[in-house]
Design a protein around this nucleic acid. Structure first.
Lengths: 334, 334
DNA sequence: CTGTTAGCGCATTCAC
DNA sequence: GTGAATGCGCTAACAG
């Protein structure tokens, strides 16, 4: 059993005590003989010694790890959130312990407990939904700070970072009105406690009430094949109007495209909360609300780091990041 | 400072020794009095005690964490690799320490060192490229096992999982020939030591030599705006032929679409290594080679777990996963 | 059925 | 300038 060299091994090889090695590692060579210093240096290189972070953490009660729990790591949007988190954490030499809940609340709970067990210094949570009270308890009981990302719970129980879903939805609807659409069908999967879906839907419904745009909300389940039929019915009912479909996200937009025949695709307006990089080339270009997941991830990480490592103690805040309206042919060619 | 309860706290509260608690936690109540057992159970619940994994790891020299280093976590393909890894690891209660190299070899090296310092039990590496010898040294020196994922180094220095790039490229070219294309332009960014790019390019060039299909390889740099011009020139030179563009990946396909005007898009054949979910809806549907990133991630994780936790010692293998040819209008409507 | 002891690798007093 | 001693939270002999 040829284990990694430990601090004791180095100490023995140099002929000093572990304390001296420890001091060397922490740059405290103010009072160290240059000779010892260089000898230590040589031995460390020779043995390829590297301090054991678990042992360090056990003493220091900081692990230099933060836990990230995401609802679905396979989602491209989520991966960009991670990108942002990672960018911020690398500069602080913080490791990421990442868990995927696979969209299951029970898995999310198990994952977060497991992250806490691993002694993470803080938690970034992109929740599956349907765990609000449980998350509330966690954020209270745990020493470590917590930040909710993209999907939040209200009232606020910790720092939150999300898209300005209300503002973005209104911006899109304003655009559709301007383009002369007079019937908007907002298409979404069931909310299932997911804040983004809830807030977008609420915004759209409020817009329908407040202003002179008619429309409705169409809720469907993924995998059930009735979307085409239901869309067809609604479209037929409004064939005297200029109809636009507004999808809650990229995935739903794809489901909508799948459900429409090519004639319908061309005849109707189409738009969505979606990644521009994708929407731009889809069909002849689909108008979209492009969010800033990388930036959101960065901000979330910054907030967490401030509390977990820099002793920040201020009030919890909700930061709403604007989305960018990107207009393409799908809402302008009619 | 109101820290989490430790095993000692529990032991004290129950009035037994830490050993007994430890035994309880490991399910060794074969010889434990039912009374003690139930008292321990109660106290643990009351105190909300959870074992500290760092301390466990320090003793056991297993951390129940594996390190994952990816070239670019923001890439949707990469996120699906992670999905697969995660699926496999959750069932074994293994945590993932994820690092993003942001496509920089130097960052990759730093990340992997950091992962090793954190005492991961194994390493899954999706390399940035240009780190081959360094990775070779790591996989030798480190106790922990290593698996290369999607991007590999040859000759094999550890278990590897990758797409069957050669077979997939040939399948696509066969399809193009069948469709009557007689000039194929393979478009790719510079290889930069990345095995997927190298192997796909080699396969295409070999196909050009072996069979009766003419074509060329076009290497461009992202961000440089000359792609449109260079493509234009080549296309003009071959306007008497049926030309198809074959992009190395999704990103390159997008760059190609950006570089072409709508007339060119319609006139030329288009295809790529790309996610079907995306390609299908792009333009009128782009023919693609759909890989199986989730499955690849699973296999990589399985291989790693076998070595890191189950004592498997067999020879290193390279597992090549087939890609699926998905045909859409972009190669059939001409 | 249960406790004592020792030690994992490191950081931190306090001595010298 | 340096070292010995102690303990972080837990596991694993070895005793009873």
């Amino acid at each position: 059993m040829n284990r990694q060299p430990s601090m004791g091994d180095v100490a023995q090889a140099v002929g000093v005590s572990k304390t001296t090695i420890s001091r060397y590692l922490h740059g405290e060579f103010g009072y160290m003989s240059p000779d010892t210093k260089s000898r230590i240096e040589a031995v460390i290189k020779k043995l390829g010694y590297r301090p054991n972070r678990m042992a360090q953490g056990l003493k220091a009660t900081v692990s230099h790890m933060i836990g990230v729990s995401v609802a679905d790591i396979g989602n491209p949007f989520t991966s960009l959130l991670l990108k942002g988190i990672q960018l911020e954490c690398r500069s602080r030499d913080i490791q990421l312990l990442v868990s995927d809940a696979n969209n299951q609340p029970a898995v999310e709970r198990a994952n977060i407990e497991s992250l806490v067990d691993a002694q993470v210094d803080g938690l970034i949570v992109n929740t599956t939904g349907r765990n609000d009270e449980w998350l509330g308890r966690v954020s209270q009981s745990t020493e470590s700070a917590m930040v909710m990302l993209d999907r939040i719970v209200q009232p606020i129980i910790c720092d939150c970072v999300a898209t300005d879903n209300h503002g973005a939805s209104f911006a899109m609807l304003d655009h559709l009105v301007e383009q002369g659409f007079d019937y908007v069908i907002f298409v979404s999967c069931p909310s299932e406690g997911i804040s983004t879906r809830i807030m977008r839907r609420e915004a759209v419904e409020q817009y329908f009430l407040d202003r002179a745009v008619d429309g409705e909300v169409l809720v469907y389940r993924q995998g059930e094949a009735d979307l085409a039929e239901r869309l067809g019915t609604i479209i037929a009912e409004h064939n005297d109007r200029r109809v636009c479909l507004f999808a809650n996200n990229d995935e739903t937009m794809q489901d909508v495209l799948e459900a429409l025949n090519s004639e319908q695709r061309r005849a109707l307006g189409l738009c969505a909360f979606a990644n521009e990089r994708w929407a731009k080339y889809s069909g002849d270009g689909i108008t979209c609300l492009d969010q800033s997941p990388v930036e959101m991830g960065r901000i979330a990480a910054k907030k967490l780091i401030a509390r977990a490592y820099d002793g920040f103690q201020g009030e919890y805040t909700l930061e709403e990041i604007p989305a960018q309206l990107r207009v393409y042919a799908s809402t302008t060619r009619h």
